[in-house]
Every structure is written in C-alpha cells, then in structure tokens.
Amino acid sequence: MTPIIWRVARADDAPALSILGGATFLSSFAHDHPGAALVSHIRTAHGIPYYEAALADPEQTVLIGETPLGAPVGYAMITPPDLPIATDPACDRELKRLYLLSGWQGGGHGDRIMDLVAQEARRRGASRLLLAVYPQNDRARRFYARHDFVEVGSLTFMVGDVPFRDLIYARPL
C-alpha cells in the first residue's frame, strides 16, 4: 500500500483541503443525503475560505496526509470543543474531521492518524477527545470504538438545510 506522509497543514494547503474535504464528504454521504443539501454544505463547510480561516486560527490544527508525490489523500482537524454537551476548553479537544480517500482506508492509515490526533490533543493539554459521528456510518463507528470512544450525547448536524442526528463520542487521552 502506498504510504501516507502526515504533516501539519500550512496556509497554502487550503485549496487542497477544500478539494479533499468536499470529495470525502460527498463520497461518505451521497448514498443517503439529498444532493442539493450536500452541494450547499460542501460549498460552505469545505470551501477554501473555511480552510483558510481554520489554518489561520492558532487554536486549530489540521493534519494533512499526502502520498510521496504530494497528492492529498486524508486529513484530520483538531479544534476547541464546539458541541452541545458540558465541555472544558482547557481539558477537551474536538476531532472535528477525520477523512481518508477510500483507496487509502485500511492498512493502518486510520490508526496512524488517530495516534497523531491524540498526540496533538495531548500537546495542547487535553485529557479528553470528543467527536461527532453519523449513526449510520457503521465503519466510522467501529473504528472509533476500536479507539476507545464511547457515546456521550447527540446533536443535530445541518447539511445544507436538512437536519441529521449525529452521536457525540468521547475518549480519555
């Protein structure tokens, strides 16, 4: 399997993250999300301005994974918590996004990026990692369970103008 080289994303990675974010979101949810809502969501939540702002924010870290030739194939975004449960910004970090293109899923790539996410969250002083996951995404839920995440709540996640229910998971670091 082609290796993935992980690094902290830079400001000039915003266009690549936008393409990667849109592609992975579309491929993950096109099977059961309305098309117009998906496109609307991707245009805003995965637009270049979104990633430019995230990369400029010192409270956020984006890790990008690339092939040895520099093609982006995955990323993870670690942020202060923004979830509708009790959180402590000094102790909690949120794994806002973790996506790999399908051709790079498996082979330990997900485990490697999860290890890097945990290291970054600890470096920022976190003792707990939080995330939201779509309940129908069984593969992601199994992955998070293998990494000791447990359900602690739920939220409404808007995709365009369509509400979806997500589960909130947490794990100690």
Rank of each mutant, 00 (worst) to 15 (best):
M158H: 12
P135Y: 04
R124M: 12
F149T: 00
L95D: 00
S28V: 02
P80R: 14
L55E: 07
P172D: 15
G108L: 14
A126Y: 05
I85F: 08
A121R: 00
D88Q: 13
A90N: 12
H31Q: 01
A170K: 08
A90Q: 10
F157T: 03
F25L: 14
T44L: 09
V73E: 07
R128C: 14
A90E: 13
T156N: 08
I85W: 14
F164T: 10
D148W: 10
P72R: 02
V117F: 05
S154Q: 14
P84Y: 02
T79H: 04
A36C: 06
V133Q: 14
H33K: 04
H147R: 04
S102K: 03
R141W: 03
P81H: 10
F157Q: 02
R122F: 09
H46E: 14
G106W: 08
I78N: 03
I64S: 06
P80D: 15
I42H: 06
L131F: 09
G65I: 10
A86F: 05
D57P: 07
R165G: 11
H33R: 04
H109R: 12
A126L: 00
L26F: 12
A121V: 09
L100I: 06
I64L: 11
M158P: 05
H109C: 09
I78H: 05
T67D: 07
Y75D: 01
Y169S: 09
R171F: 02
L63Q: 09
R171T: 14
A140S: 08
T61G: 02
L167V: 12
A45C: 03
Y99S: 00
P49Q: 05
A71L: 04
R139S: 08
G103T: 06
G110V: 08
R122D: 03
R142F: 11
F29N: 10
E94S: 06
I48F: 06
P80F: 11
D166N: 15
R93Y: 02
P72I: 04
Y75I: 03
F29M: 10
A170E: 12
E120R: 14
F25A: 13
V150C: 09
P89L: 09
L155P: 10
L55W: 09
R122T: 07
T67C: 04
D161P: 06
A71P: 04
G70L: 01
P89C: 11
E52I: 05
S28P: 01
P34I: 02
L155M: 15
D161A: 15
A121S: 04
A30E: 03
R141C: 07
A76Q: 02
E59V: 01
G110K: 06
L95P: 00
S27N: 09
H33Q: 02
P34D: 11
V159F: 03
H46S: 08
R171G: 03
Y50R: 13
P34V: 01
D148I: 01
P135D: 04
H147K: 01
H41W: 07
Y99W: 00
D92W: 10
R165M: 13
E120G: 04
P68H: 05
G70A: 00
A71D: 13
L130I: 13
D32L: 06
I168R: 11
D166M: 05
F25T: 15
S27A: 13
G70Q: 01
R171Q: 00
V133E: 10
G107W: 04
D82N: 15
R146G: 08
L100W: 03
V152F: 13
A140K: 06
P89I: 02
A86Q: 12
L63G: 07
